[in-house]
Simulated scan of single mutants.
Amino acid sequence: MRIVFRCDPALAEHLPRPLPARDALPGWLKAMPAKAFSESHGREIRTVKQCPPFVDAMTHGFVMPLPCDVRIEKDAVAWDWDIPEPATAGHPRAPLSFHVAEQFAGAPFANGRSALKFNSFWTVELEPGWSLYATHPVNRDDLPFRLLTGLVDSDRFQDGGINFPAVWVDPDFTGLLPKGMPVAQCFPVSRAGLDLVCESFDPARQAAYAGTVAQVLTKPGIYRKQFRAKRRE
């Protein structure tokens, strides 16, 4: 899957580039032990660090990084970012803008406060028939905001930036959002139609189900060793 990112020529040397999600894993996952003692089990059990679906979701696609440090204080957002004036008409210069609270009236995530909008400094071009799924960085509940998920037909919309709105989930947060912090995790999805087929197990599928479950319950790493597809670097 070829993905092309483009930016304003005056800003090219000032912007952190989109990067594979596998290169933006959080420190807490790296520091997590592979096993931890469970009072319920009375022994050590494997943590989610050894769960391929959990980790593969976090490493899937690419992330869009925050282009500069942003300071969050009570009722104030500030940054120091010395960049040239963009050479392209209508191009943003600020890393953030805002959505007023009324734009989310009635939504379950509405909290009466304005939402952040992380401005994009990169356009995204996908191959024909593919859309860009943009969501909150996967399993990143440590971040003080939640990105709102969106789907953009980036095989067609490829000459304008995709901005990323987010709501605050930690109203008391003060501190620094550091340059390079992932604000969105994105991956291409096909627009091909779905053909949903629901069936009952036949005897062969019943036997396969029972055998697979027995292996998973008795031997560690069955999914990783026998079923997990190799990830391309």
Rank of each mutant, 00 (worst) to 15 (best):
residue 147 L to W: 00
residue 134 A to K: 02
residue 51 C to E: 14
residue 88 T to G: 00
residue 87 A to P: 01
residue 96 L to N: 01
residue 139 N to A: 15
residue 137 P to L: 11
residue 81 W to A: 08
residue 69 D to W: 12
residue 50 Q to T: 15
residue 141 D to L: 11
residue 115 A to T: 03
residue 79 W to M: 00
residue 98 F to K: 08
residue 105 A to G: 00
residue 58 M to W: 10
residue 124 V to T: 12
residue 145 F to M: 07
residue 93 R to G: 09
residue 119 N to E: 11
residue 95 P to M: 09
residue 48 V to K: 15
residue 125 E to V: 03
residue 128 P to S: 12
residue 56 D to W: 02
residue 99 H to N: 15
residue 111 N to T: 01
residue 76 A to T: 11
residue 107 A to Y: 02
residue 96 L to K: 06
residue 81 W to D: 08
residue 108 P to I: 05
residue 111 N to Q: 02
residue 88 T to S: 12
residue 143 L to M: 12
residue 142 D to G: 02
residue 109 F to I: 07
residue 55 V to W: 06
residue 82 D to G: 04
residue 93 R to T: 13
residue 61 G to E: 02
residue 73 E to K: 10
residue 71 R to F: 07
residue 94 A to H: 13
residue 110 A to L: 00
residue 56 D to E: 15
residue 136 H to Q: 10
residue 70 V to Y: 07
residue 106 G to Q: 08
residue 97 S to K: 10
residue 132 L to E: 04
residue 124 V to P: 03
residue 90 G to R: 11
residue 124 V to F: 04
residue 74 K to H: 15
residue 129 G to V: 05
residue 123 T to C: 07
residue 142 D to Q: 02
residue 146 R to H: 09
residue 49 K to E: 05
residue 76 A to Y: 06
residue 127 E to Y: 11
residue 88 T to A: 07
residue 73 E to A: 14
residue 122 W to Y: 14
residue 140 R to L: 06
residue 135 T to K: 08
residue 133 Y to G: 00
residue 141 D to G: 14
residue 73 E to W: 03
residue 119 N to D: 02
residue 53 P to C: 09
residue 131 S to D: 13
residue 101 A to K: 11
residue 127 E to S: 14
residue 112 G to S: 02
residue 57 A to C: 13
residue 84 P to W: 02
residue 124 V to Y: 01
residue 86 P to M: 00
residue 76 A to P: 06
residue 141 D to E: 10
residue 106 G to S: 13
residue 125 E to L: 03
residue 120 S to K: 03
residue 141 D to P: 00
residue 138 V to L: 06
residue 69 D to M: 08
residue 51 C to T: 10
residue 60 H to P: 03
residue 69 D to I: 08
residue 94 A to I: 02
residue 76 A to I: 03
residue 65 P to M: 09
residue 49 K to N: 08
residue 56 D to T: 12
residue 124 V to I: 14
residue 58 M to P: 09
residue 75 D to P: 12
residue 89 A to Y: 05
residue 58 M to R: 06
residue 69 D to C: 07
residue 109 F to W: 13
residue 99 H to Y: 15
residue 93 R to K: 15
residue 65 P to E: 08
residue 130 W to S: 06
residue 116 L to D: 01
residue 129 G to Q: 07
residue 49 K to D: 05
residue 137 P to K: 07
residue 76 A to G: 02
residue 86 P to Y: 02
residue 53 P to G: 08
residue 80 D to L: 02
residue 55 V to M: 11
residue 52 P to H: 07
residue 96 L to Y: 04
residue 122 W to M: 10
residue 143 L to P: 00
residue 115 A to F: 08
residue 82 D to Q: 09
residue 84 P to T: 03
residue 134 A to R: 04
residue 147 L to D: 00
residue 52 P to A: 10
residue 94 A to F: 05
residue 56 D to S: 14
residue 104 F to L: 11
residue 61 G to P: 01
residue 116 L to G: 02
residue 128 P to K: 12
residue 86 P to E: 01
residue 116 L to C: 04
residue 90 G to V: 07
residue 103 Q to C: 12
